[in-house]
Protein backbone atom coordinates (compact mmCIF):
# COMPACT_ATOMS: atom_id res chain seq x y z
CA UNK A 1 0.00 0.00 0.00
CA UNK A 2 1.47 3.37 -1.01
CA UNK A 3 -0.86 5.57 0.97
CA UNK A 4 -3.03 4.43 3.81
CA UNK A 5 -5.12 6.88 5.79
CA UNK A 6 -7.22 5.50 8.60
CA UNK A 7 -9.75 7.32 10.72
CA UNK A 8 -7.90 10.61 10.35
CA UNK A 9 -9.15 13.45 12.51
CA UNK A 10 -7.73 16.93 12.25
CA UNK A 11 -8.75 20.04 14.12
CA UNK A 12 -7.33 23.52 14.46
CA UNK A 13 -7.84 25.98 17.30
CA UNK A 14 -10.16 28.83 16.32
CA UNK A 15 -11.56 31.86 18.18
CA UNK A 16 -14.69 29.92 19.21
CA UNK A 17 -12.97 26.74 20.44
CA UNK A 18 -11.63 24.20 17.96
CA UNK A 19 -12.63 23.73 14.37
CA UNK A 20 -12.94 20.15 13.15
CA UNK A 21 -11.59 19.92 9.60
CA UNK A 22 -11.35 16.15 9.11
CA UNK A 23 -13.70 13.73 10.90
CA UNK A 24 -12.48 10.22 10.45
CA UNK A 25 -11.19 9.98 6.88
CA UNK A 26 -10.20 6.52 5.67
CA UNK A 27 -8.75 5.93 2.23
CA UNK A 28 -5.93 4.13 0.47
CA UNK A 29 -3.95 4.20 -2.77
CA UNK A 30 -2.01 1.25 -4.21
CA UNK A 31 0.80 1.03 -6.76
CA UNK A 32 -0.21 2.03 -10.26
CA UNK A 33 -3.68 3.00 -9.15
CA UNK A 34 -5.48 6.30 -9.76
CA UNK A 35 -7.79 7.18 -6.94
CA UNK A 36 -10.15 10.12 -7.18
CA UNK A 37 -10.98 12.31 -4.22
CA UNK A 38 -14.02 14.44 -5.00
CA UNK A 39 -15.81 17.10 -3.02
CA UNK A 40 -16.73 20.76 -3.01
CA UNK A 41 -14.33 23.40 -1.67
CA UNK A 42 -14.03 23.18 2.09
CA UNK A 43 -14.87 19.48 2.15
CA UNK A 44 -11.38 18.64 3.39
CA UNK A 45 -10.01 16.90 0.31
CA UNK A 46 -6.93 19.15 0.04
CA UNK A 47 -6.27 18.87 3.76
CA UNK A 48 -6.41 15.07 3.45
CA UNK A 49 -3.83 15.09 0.65
CA UNK A 50 -1.60 17.52 2.50
CA UNK A 51 -1.72 15.32 5.58
CA UNK A 52 0.05 12.66 3.49
CA UNK A 53 3.05 15.04 3.46
CA UNK A 54 2.32 16.30 6.94
CA UNK A 55 1.70 19.77 5.49
CA UNK A 56 -0.69 20.64 8.29
CA UNK A 57 -1.15 23.94 10.13
CA UNK A 58 1.36 24.34 12.95
CA UNK A 59 -1.18 24.26 15.78
CA UNK A 60 -3.38 21.53 14.30
CA UNK A 61 -4.03 18.41 16.34
CA UNK A 62 -3.93 15.16 14.42
CA UNK A 63 -5.23 11.71 15.34
CA UNK A 64 -5.66 8.47 13.42
CA UNK A 65 -3.12 6.98 11.06
CA UNK A 66 -1.42 8.28 7.91
CA UNK A 67 1.29 6.18 6.34
CA UNK A 68 3.18 6.52 3.08
CA UNK A 69 4.97 3.31 2.04
CA UNK A 70 4.68 2.17 5.64
CA UNK A 71 6.13 5.35 7.15
CA UNK A 72 3.92 6.84 9.82
CA UNK A 73 3.38 10.60 9.46
CA UNK A 74 1.06 11.31 12.37
CA UNK A 75 3.83 11.10 14.96
CA UNK A 76 5.67 13.79 12.95
CA UNK A 77 9.21 12.44 13.32
CA UNK A 78 11.25 15.01 11.29
CA UNK A 79 13.44 12.34 9.65
CA UNK A 80 10.38 10.41 8.44
CA UNK A 81 8.66 13.58 7.25
CA UNK A 82 11.79 14.57 5.33
CA UNK A 83 12.08 11.12 3.72
CA UNK A 84 8.44 11.05 2.65
CA UNK A 85 8.50 14.60 1.29
CA UNK A 86 11.81 14.32 -0.53
CA UNK A 87 11.72 10.73 -1.83
CA UNK A 88 8.39 8.96 -1.60
CA UNK A 89 5.59 11.37 -2.37
CA UNK A 90 5.25 14.52 -4.45
CA UNK A 91 2.46 17.00 -4.72
CA UNK A 92 1.30 18.77 -7.86
CA UNK A 93 -0.45 21.90 -6.74
CA UNK A 94 -3.41 23.59 -8.33
CA UNK A 95 -1.92 26.88 -9.54
CA UNK A 96 1.35 26.35 -11.43
CA UNK A 97 1.90 30.09 -11.61
CA UNK A 98 1.77 30.38 -7.83
CA UNK A 99 3.93 27.39 -6.93
CA UNK A 100 6.89 28.47 -9.06
CA UNK A 101 8.94 31.20 -7.45
CA UNK A 102 8.21 34.25 -9.68
CA UNK A 103 11.67 35.79 -9.29
CA UNK A 104 13.63 32.64 -10.14
CA UNK A 105 14.24 31.12 -13.54
CA UNK A 106 12.35 27.96 -14.48
CA UNK A 107 15.57 25.94 -14.49
CA UNK A 108 16.42 27.08 -11.02
CA UNK A 109 12.98 26.22 -9.65
CA UNK A 110 12.66 22.91 -11.47
CA UNK A 111 16.05 21.66 -10.29
CA UNK A 112 15.72 23.02 -6.76
CA UNK A 113 14.65 19.75 -5.19
CA UNK A 114 17.37 17.76 -6.93
CA UNK A 115 20.12 20.26 -6.16
CA UNK A 116 19.13 21.49 -2.71
CA UNK A 117 17.43 18.41 -1.28
CA UNK A 118 19.18 15.50 -3.01
CA UNK A 119 22.61 17.11 -3.49
CA UNK A 120 22.69 16.33 -7.21
CA UNK A 121 25.29 18.48 -9.02
CA UNK A 122 23.69 21.41 -10.86
CA UNK A 123 24.64 20.34 -14.38
CA UNK A 124 23.40 16.79 -13.80
CA UNK A 125 20.13 18.09 -12.34
CA UNK A 126 19.59 20.36 -15.35
CA UNK A 127 20.26 17.45 -17.70
CA UNK A 128 17.73 15.25 -15.91
CA UNK A 129 15.09 17.97 -15.78
CA UNK A 130 15.65 18.78 -19.47
CA UNK A 131 15.01 15.09 -20.25
CA UNK A 132 11.79 15.18 -18.25
CA UNK A 133 10.74 18.41 -19.98
CA UNK A 134 11.15 16.54 -23.24
CA UNK A 135 9.06 13.69 -21.89
CA UNK A 136 6.19 15.94 -20.81
CA UNK A 137 6.14 17.51 -24.26
CA UNK A 138 8.00 20.73 -23.65
CA UNK A 139 10.15 21.77 -26.58
CA UNK A 140 13.17 24.10 -26.69
CA UNK A 141 14.25 23.12 -23.18
CA UNK A 142 17.42 25.23 -23.22
CA UNK A 143 15.47 28.45 -23.60
CA UNK A 144 12.79 27.21 -21.23
CA UNK A 145 15.25 26.62 -18.41
CA UNK A 146 16.38 30.24 -18.66
CA UNK A 147 12.83 31.69 -18.83
CA UNK A 148 10.88 33.20 -15.97
CA UNK A 149 7.43 31.87 -15.03
CA UNK A 150 5.67 35.02 -16.27
CA UNK A 151 6.98 34.37 -19.76
CA UNK A 152 5.20 31.01 -20.10
CA UNK A 153 1.59 29.92 -20.49
CA UNK A 154 -0.36 28.11 -17.76
CA UNK A 155 -0.24 24.84 -19.67
CA UNK A 156 3.53 25.00 -20.07
CA UNK A 157 3.97 25.88 -16.40
CA UNK A 158 1.83 22.92 -15.34
CA UNK A 159 4.05 20.63 -17.41
CA UNK A 160 7.10 22.18 -15.77
CA UNK A 161 5.59 21.54 -12.35
CA UNK A 162 4.77 17.93 -13.25
CA UNK A 163 8.27 17.35 -14.62
CA UNK A 164 9.76 18.81 -11.45
CA UNK A 165 7.53 16.62 -9.29
CA UNK A 166 8.62 13.52 -11.24
CA UNK A 167 12.32 14.43 -11.14
CA UNK A 168 12.88 12.71 -7.80
CA UNK A 169 11.02 9.58 -8.84
CA UNK A 170 8.20 9.67 -6.28
CA UNK A 171 6.09 6.50 -5.83
CA UNK A 172 3.00 8.49 -4.87
CA UNK A 173 1.69 11.56 -6.68
CA UNK A 174 -0.79 13.83 -4.97
CA UNK A 175 -2.47 15.83 -7.71
CA UNK A 176 -4.44 18.61 -6.03
CA UNK A 177 -6.69 20.05 -8.75
CA UNK A 178 -3.63 19.67 -10.94
CA UNK A 179 -5.51 20.45 -14.13
CA UNK A 180 -8.26 22.77 -12.91
CA UNK A 181 -6.43 25.94 -13.88
CA UNK A 182 -6.00 24.75 -17.45
CA UNK A 183 -8.25 25.11 -20.46
CA UNK A 184 -10.02 21.96 -21.60
CA UNK A 185 -7.64 21.02 -24.40
CA UNK A 186 -4.55 21.47 -22.26
CA UNK A 187 -6.27 19.62 -19.44
CA UNK A 188 -6.82 16.60 -21.70
CA UNK A 189 -3.18 16.67 -22.80
CA UNK A 190 -1.86 16.94 -19.27
CA UNK A 191 -4.12 14.13 -18.08
CA UNK A 192 -3.02 11.86 -20.91
CA UNK A 193 0.57 12.66 -20.05
CA UNK A 194 0.06 11.89 -16.37
CA UNK A 195 -1.58 8.59 -17.24
CA UNK A 196 1.30 7.56 -19.51
CA UNK A 197 3.98 8.49 -17.00
CA UNK A 198 2.05 6.77 -14.26
CA UNK A 199 1.82 3.52 -16.25
CA UNK A 200 5.54 3.61 -17.02
CA UNK A 201 6.53 4.15 -13.42
CA UNK A 202 3.80 2.26 -11.57
CA UNK A 203 3.10 5.44 -9.64
CA UNK A 204 0.06 5.68 -7.41
CA UNK A 205 -1.97 8.85 -7.91
CA UNK A 206 -4.40 10.51 -5.54
CA UNK A 207 -6.36 12.68 -7.93
CA UNK A 208 -8.17 15.49 -6.20
CA UNK A 209 -10.88 17.33 -8.07
CA UNK A 210 -14.24 18.98 -7.60
CA UNK A 211 -15.36 17.49 -10.88
CA UNK A 212 -17.17 14.17 -10.29
CA UNK A 213 -17.46 13.46 -14.02
CA UNK A 214 -13.75 13.94 -14.57
CA UNK A 215 -12.96 11.70 -11.60
CA UNK A 216 -15.36 9.02 -12.82
CA UNK A 217 -13.79 9.10 -16.28
CA UNK A 218 -10.15 9.25 -15.20
CA UNK A 219 -9.84 7.25 -11.98
CA UNK A 220 -10.06 3.61 -10.97
CA UNK A 221 -11.84 4.27 -7.70
CA UNK A 222 -13.48 7.40 -6.35
CA UNK A 223 -13.97 8.70 -2.83
CA UNK A 224 -16.47 11.48 -2.24
CA UNK A 225 -15.89 13.78 0.71
CA UNK A 226 -18.23 16.15 2.48
CA UNK A 227 -17.69 18.18 5.66
CA UNK A 228 -14.42 16.45 6.45
CA UNK A 229 -15.64 12.88 6.06
CA UNK A 230 -15.78 10.30 3.27
CA UNK A 231 -19.41 9.78 2.35
CA UNK A 232 -18.98 7.48 -0.62
CA UNK A 233 -16.39 5.03 -1.95
CA UNK A 234 -17.00 3.19 -5.21
CA UNK A 235 -15.45 1.97 -8.39
CA UNK A 236 -15.38 4.85 -10.86
CA UNK A 237 -17.37 2.85 -13.40
CA UNK A 238 -20.40 2.52 -11.14
CA UNK A 239 -20.49 5.83 -9.31
CA UNK A 240 -22.81 7.51 -11.78
CA UNK A 241 -24.96 4.42 -12.21
CA UNK A 242 -25.84 3.77 -8.60
CA UNK A 243 -24.56 6.37 -6.18
CA UNK A 244 -25.17 5.09 -2.66
CA UNK A 245 -25.04 8.37 -0.79
CA UNK A 246 -27.66 11.09 -1.33
CA UNK A 247 -24.89 13.68 -1.61
CA UNK A 248 -23.17 11.80 -4.44
CA UNK A 249 -26.54 11.42 -6.09
CA UNK A 250 -27.06 15.18 -5.85
CA UNK A 251 -23.59 15.80 -7.27
CA UNK A 252 -24.20 13.39 -10.11
CA UNK A 253 -27.51 15.02 -10.92
CA UNK A 254 -26.06 18.53 -10.64
CA UNK A 255 -24.18 18.10 -13.90
CA UNK A 256 -25.56 20.82 -16.15
CA UNK A 257 -26.93 19.62 -19.45
CA UNK A 258 -27.52 21.73 -22.50
CA UNK A 259 -31.23 21.92 -23.30
CA UNK A 260 -32.36 19.99 -26.35
CA UNK A 261 -32.75 22.18 -29.37
CA UNK A 262 -36.53 22.24 -29.76
CA UNK A 263 -38.74 23.94 -32.23
CA UNK A 264 -41.07 25.53 -29.69
CA UNK A 265 -38.27 27.13 -27.61
CA UNK A 266 -37.00 28.74 -30.76
CA UNK A 267 -40.44 30.10 -31.41
CA UNK A 268 -40.86 31.28 -27.84
CA UNK A 269 -37.66 33.26 -27.94
CA UNK A 270 -38.45 34.76 -31.32
Amino acid sequence: MLLAIEDLHLSVPSPGGTRQILRGVTLDVSEGETVGLVGESGSGKSTTARAALRLVPERASLSGAVSVCGHDLVAGDPAVVRKVRSELAAMIFQEPRAVLNPVRRIGDSATERLVRVHDVPKAEARRRVAELFDEVGLADTGRLLRAYPHQLSGGMLQRVVIAAALSTGPRLLLADEATSALDVTTQAEVLALLRRLQRERETGVLFITHDLQLAAAYCDRVYVMRDGAVVEHQKASTIFVNPADPYTKALAEAVPRLPEREQNTMEASA
Binding site: R50, L55, R85, M91, F93, A98, E112, R116, V117, A165
Partner: peptide, 17 residues
Amino acid sequence: TLDHVEAARSYGLGTWS
Protein backbone atom coordinates in the same frame (compact mmCIF):
# COMPACT_ATOMS: atom_id res chain seq x y z
CA THR B 1 2.26 32.28 3.24
CA LEU B 2 2.68 32.08 -0.55
CA ASP B 3 2.18 28.84 -2.45
CA HIS B 4 5.74 28.50 -3.70
CA VAL B 5 6.97 28.49 -0.11
CA GLU B 6 4.45 25.77 0.77
CA ALA B 7 5.49 23.87 -2.36
CA ALA B 8 9.16 24.08 -1.38
CA ARG B 9 8.22 22.69 2.03
CA SER B 10 6.27 19.89 0.33
CA TYR B 11 9.39 18.54 -1.36
CA GLY B 12 11.49 18.65 1.74
CA LEU B 13 13.56 21.80 1.21
CA GLY B 14 15.31 22.72 4.47
CA THR B 15 14.10 25.61 6.58
CA TRP B 16 17.25 27.65 5.94
CA SER B 17 16.98 27.24 2.16
